[in-house]
Simulated assay, not measured.
Amino acid sequence: MTDRRVAVVGGGVIGLSVACHLAEAGVGTVLLERHGLGSGASRATADVLRAYFLGNPVSSAMAVRSLDAYRAFAWRIGTPLPMRRAGYLILFTERDQIAAFEDDLPAQQAAGVDVALVDAEEARRRNPLVGDIGLLAAAWSPQAYVSDTAAIVSGFAAAARRAGADLRTDCPVTAIDVAKGRLHTAGGVLTADAIVCAAGAWSVPLARSAGVDLPLAEPVEQELLATGPPPSRIPLPDIPITLHAASGLLVRKRGDGLLVGMGYPGPDREGWREQVRAQLAVTYPSLEGTALRTAFTGVRDASPDRTAFIGRAPARTPFFYAAGFSGHGLCTAPAAGRLVRDLYLGREPDIDVQRLAATAQRG
């Protein structure tokens, strides 16, 4: 039996950020990961760091702060984090999408997001691949980058270890006894003064043991697809990260092709891929007939409103949670780690954490 001050459950980018921030604050920290570091949702990201989350200014505020932290990542890992500015473009084909953007704009600007509405001509200038889709306007935010998730995971891990954190892989947590501060693992029982649940898709039963109901959807498998070069063999232009708002089709340039995402595959994976092929051909006609292959897969957790749950439970052993990031964890990980650290240390967070609590009224 080993004693630690704080035990973090989950070795994805969120759990690693939490462990890193706690250890750098001088807190004795152990992290427990069921497989390898970054092997869950962190394995299936588009390597995108962006500040703008339409309709979600809380996530945007966290992402703005996280971008600042990523730009300064060199002090943690010794070298700058790879960050290629690409910009983020959201294509609007319906009037109510534009109205929603305008209603949301003041809150986004207050969160520090640089975003503006541009006309269809400007949108096509930025992404000349866009076809005749009835484009009315687009949201444009220059605060978006293509980075390297593996470098972020390894950077947080190295910094956490350097600060004294004990990172244990292949160590699944099977149960938590919050009343006694005990974590039952494959390697035995570990006790802690505080517990942080950052287990992604596996967070619900662990949080329930502390009396916390995290209303997360059933774990879903995310799949990102990759294209080869376009059939014309004409090199693709350097397009921004682009979202087609109506379908959820997200693309970014990757090598001589594109990385493509569109929701979750569900049980009919081949049917979903056909939908992606069809939508890709409609949105970007020059890519019709381009072959698609699986690039990455990983299991994700998702909250009902796609805003993360971060907070503290009134348990006998202090219990904190950071889950439900809905695929946005990479963009918000530094801010999430700092929030959990501040909650543990009793500091005043720089974001209204009450809006992130599992008990908060959202809508």
Rank of each mutant, 00 (worst) to 15 (best):
T297K: 13
D148W: 09
F53L: 13
E223L: 05
V299E: 04
R161F: 01
V260N: 03
L339T: 15
V58F: 14
G257S: 02
I133C: 12
R347Y: 13
T93C: 11
G87V: 03
G324F: 00
P106N: 05
S286V: 12
A139E: 14
D3Y: 12
W75P: 00
V353N: 11
V13S: 07
L31C: 01
L54F: 08
R5M: 06
G134W: 13
T169V: 14
D268K: 13
M262K: 10
A336V: 15
W75G: 05
G298C: 05
Q97N: 07
R65H: 04
D342F: 09
V64T: 03
A72M: 02
A100W: 14
G78I: 03
A159E: 04
R312M: 12
T317P: 08
C197Y: 02
R316W: 06
A123F: 11
S42G: 05
Y264C: 00
A295W: 05
G200E: 04
S141F: 11
L183Y: 10
R5P: 01
L67P: 02
R252M: 14
V8E: 10
R338V: 00
P267Q: 15
R252W: 09
S326A: 15
V30I: 14
T307W: 00
L105N: 06
F309G: 06
L236W: 01
L129W: 06
A63P: 01
D170H: 11
G346N: 10
L249Q: 12
V189G: 10
S59F: 00
L54C: 11
D132L: 06
S203F: 01
C20I: 13
H21V: 02
T332F: 08
R34E: 14
G134E: 11
V204P: 02
A100K: 12
L89M: 13
L343G: 02
F309V: 07
L81D: 07
A19N: 07
P219K: 06
V153P: 04
D305N: 08
A61Q: 08
F156L: 09
Q354I: 00
I310M: 04
A163E: 08
A302R: 15
T294C: 01
V276K: 03
E221A: 12
R76N: 04
